[in-house]
């Protein structure tokens, strides 16, 4: 390499130096340390002691670990696909040219601005079994009839009945679905990303499809959704990463209860690390979490070849 090339490299590295330091101190060294801690018994009070794969072995037999993992996956299964569909539906609706469009867009976006702690407190009040708004609404006649109808069907197939008023956050059967339902209120961020993607769907394509006689549904299925698929894919990846790390909202609202029904993976990790000071055990959990996220992301990438369409390819 010539002298000028070396000089260029020097300049580039100088500008990148904040991140290079940050990468060393907050990523590279911690990753290596975390891997090391995960094979150690480390209580923070004494230096880490090597114990081989014992942490991982113990995790496999830990019922709370399994519970927190199944809770997290269950939450992801409920909240993730529904969340993506709710936000896509909202974006499609908000993309229709109507008077007051800006107003509707603002209204849907506003909830995603509410700070985590404030929205946790608000929803505790909304979910309140006796005085909360949600049970008040469900107490209206049409909803009472609906619940009675569902109960009749449940009775026919010998399933447990829905008891009203529903103890959203106090009944172990309802707490997790309640948190998933609550997450739909904050989809504004995702909706904005979809909306931006919808602006890039070529209008010539939509128009020519319409001239060829394609109705609204066919245009949606054969033009809009394929053109939007890279954005759907991006949101899917973000949602996988986000839902598998769910922490603050349930930690504040339920503390993991009732009966550990909302005790999630990251909460158990946090408790192990900072409450029980089992740093080695917590680190082993973090690696398992990373592997799960990587596996799901890899599956998403693999499947994307079948359903994501990139323009210009």
């Amino acid at each position: 390499m010539t002298r000028t090339e070396w000089k260029q490299i020097g300049k580039g590295l100088a500008f990148c130096s904040p991140w290079l330091i940050g990468f060393m101190v907050f990523t590279l060294i911690p990753v290596v340390l975390s891997l090391y801690y995960s094979v150690c018994d480390y209580s923070l009070l004494q230096p880490p002691a090597y114990i081989g794969g014992a942490n991982y072995h113990e995790l496999l037999d830990d019922p709370i670990f399994r519970k927190s993992l199944t809770n997290t996956l269950l939450y992801a299964i409920i909240a993730l696909p529904a969340g993506l569909m709710v936000s896509l539906g909202l974006a499609l609706l908000l993309n229709v040219k109507v008077a007051g469009q800006t107003f509707y867009r603002t209204v849907i976006f506003l909830p995603s601005l509410v700070p985590t702690v404030a929205s946790a407190m608000l929803w505790m009040w909304l979910f309140n079994a006796k005085l909360g708004l949600i049970n008040t609404v469900l107490d209206w006649l049409p909803f009472r009839l609906l619940i009675a109808g569902i109960n009749a069907i449940l009775g026919l197939v010998h399933l447990p009945q829905i008891e009203t008023p529903i103890g959203w956050l106090t009944n172990p059967a309802w707490a997790l679905p309640a948190l998933a339902f609550m997450s739909f209120w904050g989809v504004g961020h995702t909706v904005v990303i979809y909306l931006a993607g919808l602006q890039d769907v070529p209008s010539e394509l939509l128009e020519s499809a319409e001239i060829d006689g394609a109705g609204m549904t066919r245009r949606l299925w054969h033009v809009t959704l394929p053109m939007l698929s890279p954005v759907i894919f991006f949101n899917l990846i973000m949602a996988i990463i986000g839902t598998l790390q769910v922490f603050a909202i349930p930690y504040i609202m339920t503390g993991g209860g009732p009966a550990r029904a909302t005790y999630f993976f990251t909460m158990y990790l946090y408790d192990n690390a900072f409450r029980y000071l089992k740093m080695g055990y917590a680190s082993a959990m973090a690696w398992i979490q990373l592997l799960i996220i990587l596996a799901l992301t890899a599956i998403a990438f693999w499947s994307s070849r079948k359903w994501v369409y990139y323009q210009g390819k």
């Binding site: 390499m1 090339e5 260029q8 490299i9 300049k11 580039g12 590295l13 990148c16 991140w19 990468f23 101190v25 907050f26 990523t27 060294i29 911690p30 990753v31 340390l33 975390s34 801690y37 923070l44 990463i241 598998l244 790390q245 990251t266 990790l269 690390a273 900072f274 740093m279 917590a282 680190s283 959990m285 973090a286 690696w287 979490q289 990373l290 996220i293 990587l294 992301t297």
Partner: peptide
């Protein structure tokens, strides 16, 4: 400059790392 692209992709890669992995060691640091 040479190596810029490599550094950029390394950079993007760190976004996929869940913060939980580095949470404990960063705390000890």
């Amino acid at each position: 400059w040479r190596g810029r692209e490599v550094l950029f992709y390394l950079f993007i890669g760190t976004m996929l790392l869940p913060p939980q992995v580095t949470m404990v060691p960063v705390f000890t640091i």
